[in-house]
């Protein structure tokens, strides 16, 4: 590269040749600050390497103790608990769907056009969307006593805002053109919804509900830990007494059930699509 060429390059694209030192400096400063903040947080949380190591050591012992897995002679009870967990998930999902459907219709911008009303409605759904089912379960179990009833309501309460929001979006995202096409054929508004909107929206909603059923099966297992019964309760009991051979057995069985449910729901969703 001779000086003449360099000068020529400088002349045609000056900015491209002079990297902005200010921008580089700011980028570096931001990176360093972020790293420092991360380390500070770790220190504040007392994430000491020593305790991490000893913890993993203990985990290893647990794992060694858990071999071979065993059902502890409680297989029928475990199976019933699994069925109960699924029952909770299904009941919770169905209730959530039934409540979320009208809410979702009201929440759709295309249905309720009034912007302030729409905003307030959506925002209030958003507030509740943050509350996990576990937090509901804690309070419902203490209200209704131990057992799956509180769990079902907790799952439903946690799902309703999210499902309603998804339903609203499905309705809003529906293509207007088929609806216009059906309307142009001179049918009543209800029939226009039936033939113009429903074919687009129902499969989307159904597949969302199936997703929620899958995730509720997982959440329902968790609710047992705070006293809603089912497989979570059986697991907690055994973790508390360090019976890891049974813990591993139950977790394995549970994972198989989850995988089976996911497969069924996935194939259903594919048929919907």
């Amino acid at each position: 590269m001779n000086p003449g060429q360099l000068a020529r390059a400088r002349q045609v694209a000056p900015e491209a040749l002079q990297p902005s030192w200010r921008r580089r400096l700011i980028n570096w400063a931001l990176t360093v600050a972020a790293a420092a903040a991360f380390v500070a947080m770790c220190v504040d949380l007392q994430l000491a390497p020593a305790s991490v190591l000893s913890g993993f050591g203990k985990l290893g012992t647990f794992l060694a103790n858990s071999m071979p897995p065993s059902d502890g002679g409680d297989l029928p009870r475990i199976l019933v608990a699994l069925a109960e967990t699924f029952a909770m998930a299904l009941a919770g999902t169905v209730i959530a769907t039934l409540v979320a459907l009208p809410l979702g219709v009201i929440g759709a911008k295309t249905v309720v056009g009034q912007p302030v009303l729409h905003f307030v409605f959506r925002r209030s759904l958003d507030w509740f969307r943050g509350v996990p089912s576990l937090v509901w379960a804690l309070i419902l179990v203490s209200a209704f006593g131990l057992g799956p009833f509180g769990g079902v309501i907790a799952l439903a309460l946690a799902d309703i805002p999210s499902l309603a929001k998804l339903f609203s979006e499905a309705i809003e995202n529906a293509d207007e053109k088929p609806l216009d096409g059906v309307r142009a054929a001179g049918v009543s508004p209800l029939m226009a919804l039936r033939y113009g909107l429903a074919p687009q929206v129902v499969p989307v909603m159904a597949s969302q509900v199936l997703f929620f059923l899958e995730s509720n099966f997982r959440n329902a297992a968790v609710l047992g830990i705070v006293g809603a019964g089912g497989i979570g309760f059986e697991l907690e009991e055994r973790i508390r007494i360090f019976a890891f051979d049974q813990v591993v057995f139950i977790i394995g069985l549970y994972m198989i059930c989850v995988a089976a449910l996911d497969m069924v729901s996935q194939s259903l969703r594919q048929r919907l699509a």
């Binding site: 949380l45 007392q46 994430l47 305790s51 991490v52 913890g55 993993f56 203990k58 985990l59 647990f62 576990l134 997982r218 959440n219 297992a221 968790v222 830990i225 979570g232 697991l235 907690e236 973790i239 360090f242 813990v247 977790i251 549970y254 994972m255 989850v258 995988a259």
Partner: peptide
């Protein structure tokens, strides 16, 4: 597949109560 809370229960048993688990 493994629910967070179940994992947390096991890790609390291993790492002790506190934010680390």
């Amino acid at each position: 597949t493994l629910p967070d809370l179940v994992l947390a229960l096991i890790l609390v048993a291993a790492f002790g109560a506190g934010p680390l688990a």
